[in-house]
Amino acid sequence: MQTVAAAVTMVRDDAFFLKAWLRHYGETLGRENCYIVNHGRGTEVAELAAGCNVIGIPGNPHKNFDMKRWRLLNNLVHGLRSYYDHVIVGDVDELVIVDPAAGQGLLAFLEDQPIRRVLTPVGLEVIHRIDVEEEPVTDRIIGPRRHVRLAPHYSKPCVVSLGTKIARGGHFTQASKLFTPEPLYLLHLKFCDFSNYVATMNARNDVTAQTGASVQEASIGRHWFAEARGEDRAVFEAFARLPMQEGFDLDWVRKRMHRTWKQRGETGYWQFDRPEYDTQYQLPERFNGVI
């Protein structure tokens, strides 16, 4: 049984993303090294995650949902670090991958990485170009979907082998050194499929409505609220208007992350600048089937 890496997430329903998470980490790390917090003890989650380590918790709506969630995830990561060299932690729609050009999979890559550090992959948001990508997503996402946009907000310090605190949302840690290995990426899947996006947002809007709290009152991401949603088809149609970039060399992104690395005020956390980039890339064919 390997002790190089484990993966941890929390999920409430979200079968589409959970299936992708299980395919990726289950195949890469082994299901016995996957830890899933089943928020609400959903039957479908438990069935899909058979062979994984499933922790069922109550699913009562709460305005401080995100704060409670990351308190639990932080402590799970701290505990699992006693048994694994690296622990990957994040939302169920976030998957850490290695560029196939590196010639090794995620497990082999992490086996070669020193411990006592936090690795921060470059964040890429997989976007469904509904004007040109008609093929539905089935057992694989990359292939039917090949377009991505830079997402610094999802360049998360999510591969942990150091005792450190992770901020709510997973965007920052208290680790003072930044490590951004060249072939490592985090793929955010929220916009990878139009039909699933509509269904997921409907479900999340229902959850926040049940709390009875406003955006200002709740410790829940603003994007979960109906008033911050916008018109779904217009969101996806706008992807076609993002300027297409040639090639796929993102070294400049990592250099900028390091150049802007600094303390996050008096919070104890560290950060890099996270500008908005209105551009898109097409993933090279070598990425087909990576998730």
Rank of each mutant, 00 (worst) to 15 (best):
Y84C: 05
N205T: 11
G40D: 06
A218R: 00
E227H: 00
H147D: 14
V4R: 03
S176A: 15
N60Y: 13
E276C: 12
P183M: 08
A50E: 15
E182K: 14
D273S: 10
E276W: 12
P243K: 01
W21T: 07
T138C: 12
A151D: 10
V54H: 01
L76P: 08
G59L: 00
V96F: 05
T211S: 04
S82R: 08
H171C: 09
V4E: 05
A228L: 06
E266L: 13
W224D: 12
A49K: 06
G79Q: 07
P136K: 01
V198S: 10
V118D: 09
H153A: 15
K190A: 11
R41Y: 10
H128R: 03
V253Y: 11
I55K: 09
G169C: 02
D131I: 05
Y185W: 04
G51W: 08
G230E: 01
R71M: 14
F239H: 05
Q210T: 13
N33Y: 02
D232Q: 09
F65K: 11
V235C: 09
R274E: 10
R140G: 08
R12G: 09
V290P: 06
R274Y: 04
H171K: 13
W70G: 03
Q245E: 15
L178P: 02
F17S: 03
V137Q: 09
V54F: 02
E227K: 00
H86G: 01
L186D: 01
N75E: 13
V54L: 06
V37M: 07
S155N: 04
K68E: 14
G169M: 03
D66Y: 05
I55W: 11
D278M: 12
V148R: 04
D251Q: 14
G230S: 05
E246D: 15
T267M: 07
W270M: 08
H171E: 12
T3Y: 11
A234H: 08
R233E: 14
T120V: 04
G26I: 07
N196C: 05
F17Q: 05
V122G: 10
R222H: 14
V148M: 00
S195R: 14
R264Y: 12
R145W: 04
I142M: 04
K255N: 13
I57V: 15
R254L: 07
R71V: 13
G79C: 08
